[in-house]
Nucleic acid binder design. Structure first.
Lengths: 207, 207
DNA sequence: AATCTGAGCGTACACTTGTAAGCTAAAATA
DNA sequence: TATTTTAGCTTACAAGTGTACGCTCAGATT
């Protein structure tokens, strides 16, 4: 059981995943991919595809998982940057924009399948985004004065805004892009300020 | 030139548009539609399709326009409700949720093509949403103390959050749905409060 | 060493797709 | 009334799709 065989299998499996990601672009979504094309780019016969995935859906869900993983790694990186003295909001936004640029196809997959035609896909993407929100909510709850519910609502809004800004960023460059980033930063500030303001108000009420 | 001919043409043109909308659903997006299927449902031969549209893209852009129209009508309705004494935020959100329910396929089209594979589609949807944002920004600027830039940033955030909540609402019902609506209402309040708070601060600074 | 397993292949088939070409007949025009 | 226009039709084709079936032969197992 040296695993020469299993190793090779893993390799072509990964080749399929990468082939699929490579074929994603601004004008090619996952549902546009064909099993045959993916197999061709991965260098195997169409029918060999089935040795690795039941169908294209299964490939797709695997890809969503992989994109989610990238996203979580990104979060960790952002946290590190913040810990070493960056502004929370700006650092988060800038880090996310790097994700858009460096892993645009991963992001595109999440973006599109979030509202795609497969319920399983939508659920998978929603799960990944929820991770994101929960982590942020946890951070907000521990670092700012607010309860769990307020933290979650706040985090959800922030993630939604950043994610959406990312989507818009895909189509623009240069100054327009900078303006977009500046706008979303202000939007996050509004959220933060508004939330903390309501918290203070509640405390006054109950005092 | 009684127009019997032109009238009939308009009728089947509309039949094509409606057939296409009817074929949209939770698990059937515009890019899944085929010219033949649409023609079949509209009751004409596949090749007759070309008497009305150059290709499916042209049909799609027409559909986006139609959905945009529905959206603008919705805005007018919301404004009427607000004028007759409703809470701005709650009324807007509730009205939007009615749009999601009553015209789900129109909404689905905008939702999906916003991040779809055709740049023309994305631009068309972005344009419709921008109308929405600009109208709201104009309202905010005239009814609350803030400058044009602040109003726009605020309006953009609010529209993004409501639009996104709509997307999530498509997949859920009942209590979860109510909770979602409540969350987005709070998010809008945070935005409003945060923005007005920053405005006050600026005034204090410059005074 | 003998046997089994399974990743990858080639062939084949039944479908669906977009659309080209040319016809028909009814409405519009002159 | 004679002519032109055109919405819709039928037929036809080439291209691409998913996948069933059965083979091979290198690696794993016994």
């Amino acid at each position: 059981m040296s695993g020469v065989r299993a190793q090779q299998k893993q390799k072509t499996r990964q080749a399929l995943i990468e082939a699929a990601f490579n074929q994603l672009s601004a004008d090619h979504s996952f549902s546009n991919l064909s099993l045959r094309e993916v197999a061709r780019e991965a260098g195997i016969a169409p029918t060999s595809f089935y040795r690795h995935f039941k169908d294209m859906n299964e490939l797709g869900l695997t890809m969503v998982d992989e994109a989610g993983l990238t996203l979580r790694q990104l979060m960790r990186q952002a946290r590190r940057r913040i810990a070493s003295g960056g502004s929370v909001i700006t650092t988060s936004v800038v880090t996310f924009m790097e994700f858009i640029d460096n892993s645009s196809n991963q992001f595109r997959l999440l973006l599109r399948e979030r509202s795609g035609t497969s319920k399983a896909f939508r659920a998978a993407v929603a799960r990944e985004i929820k991770h994101f929100i929960l982590e942020l909510a946890h951070y907000l709850e521990s670092e700012t004065p607010c309860n769990a519910s307020q933290a979650y609502i706040q985090a959800e809004a922030m993630v939604t805004l950043v994610f959406n800004a990312g989507a818009e960023a895909l189509d623009i460059e240069g100054q327009q892009r900078d303006e977009l980033v500046e706008r979303v930063i202000w939007q996050l500030r509004y959220i933060t300020r508004g939330a903390s303001n309501y918290v203070r108000e509640n405390k006054t009420d109950s005092a």
